[in-house]
Design a protein around this nucleic acid. Structure first.
Lengths: 234, 234
DNA sequence: GGATGACCAGATTCGAAATTTGGTCATCCA
DNA sequence: TGGATGACCAAATTTCGAATCTGGTCATCC
């Protein structure tokens, strides 16, 4: 029977962790980070509150994992698209897709929509290491720029730091949403297109890249994404 | 003596208004909108509190005028630069300059740096009409895009609304500052250059504009700026 | 008759009590 | 006997009424 238990326990453990995560996600979307209590999460997952703490050291770490998973998933989608079509590895396409993910994903959108308190939670890796959000994203962006430059998709005449800064600023601006606009709000897909066009015009090299070059670049971009995803899950 | 008074009174009135405005500006920079009291403004201007209300109906209107003046001044600088050099009327140059004004001006910077409570105050014209800030800025931007398109400085193939949106989003992103950056912060002038480059690449027509065309466009831009400035002062 | 500051009502702040909540751990089963 | 649990605790947050502050008025004064 001990065999049974030692084999079944981790399984049950895993399933239970999933239930907790699912409950946390539901509540996060419904109430926002601050309103969600560990008690309520436990109730929804039909377990005792203490049990939550058998899986995560703190509430913050629980949510950090939730967010890391969403990010992991989003990067996965991006990677899949690039594998399917090398052209998706172009700077403008990647930035466009990041914007769309950010806009579409209910969790990131919920975070962005006022509950930025949660951002503090992201600053923790599963192991407990600090700063994943900014540093992680920034590291990835820096690596991508490096790759794009190496493959001639971006000009190497301008400093990489400037290009990184520009991408970050423009992306931020489009996500923030061109502030208060009277009347008609532009649709996400259309905004994404405008963003893509802006990045392309401002940063991509004008020559249409060779298909072979594109494929090689895509490999490196995929590698960068993979590394980022791994870091995310530690 | 009544002659003397009727001639001197408006003069004194004007000078007094200036003193009040100056005191308000000082306090705004030192304390931020919310901390500043009408009492303190009056004290600094060496007048009674009630006197402030002989000039403005409310505290909000007093600060609205202060901000409108700053904006008026900023647009004046921009106009002067364009008069001196037609090339300054190019989209990228104008946006670049707006960014620099926004960054340099202590008042707008103070507002942007946390005291957004004050933004409510901007939403009032001297007459008491509503919404100057967004609507005023947006109207000007729309008019400028119109002018730039008319003179072939911007592509007319893309919808004007898209171009307006793009400019607004990019400008917002650069002002917001490419969010949290580790380590070195890019210097304002350099950021302005990157912004200019981005706008130029994304929106300006690639052909170098003829000097004559540029001069004509500059005239229209100046007219638009003048109109905006007039509206500002009602 | 223009300037003033005491005055007022509403807004803001303060602070202590009450409540909530993240996190622990003695207890309890399976 | 080890994993699950919920009563429990300290710290944080919320409440709410009192105290204070401040925008705006107006009777008074020069």
């Amino acid at each position: 029977m001990t065999l049974d238990r030692s084999a079944a326990a981790p399984q049950a453990d895993h399933a239970r962790a999933e239930r907790i995560l699912a409950a946390a996600r539901e509540l996060l979307l419904a109430w926002g980070y601050k309103r969600v209590t560990v008690d309520e999460i436990a109730r929804r997952a039909r377990i005792g509150k203490g049990t939550v703490y058998l899986h995560w050291k703190t509430k913050q770490m629980l949510f950090a994992e939730l967010l890391r998973r969403e990010l992991h998933e989003a990067l996965g989608v991006l990677a899949a698209e690039i594998r399917e079509n090398s052209a998706a590895a172009l700077p403008s396409k990647v930035v466009r897709e990041v914007f769309l993910q950010q806009t579409r994903n209910p969790v990131t959108r919920a975070i962005h929509a006022g509950d930025s308190d949660i951002l503090g939670a992201l600053a923790v890796t599963p192991a407990g290491r600090p700063v994943i959000q900014e540093l992680g994203f920034h590291t990835l962006l820096a690596r991508l720029v490096e790759v794009w430059r190496a493959h001639g998709l971006m000009a190497v005449t301008a400093p990489a730091a400037d290009q990184i800064y520009t991408i970050d600023a423009v992306l931020t601006g489009f996500i923030t949403g061109g502030l208060a606009f009277p009347g008609e709000d532009v649709r996400p897909d259309h905004r994404a297109d405008l963003l893509g066009h802006t990045i392309k015009a401002a940063l991509e090299t004008s020559v249409t890249p060779d298909e072979a070059v594109l494929r090689e670049a895509a490999q490196d971009v995929l590698a960068a994404l993979g590394a980022a995803r791994d870091t995310l899950m530690t």
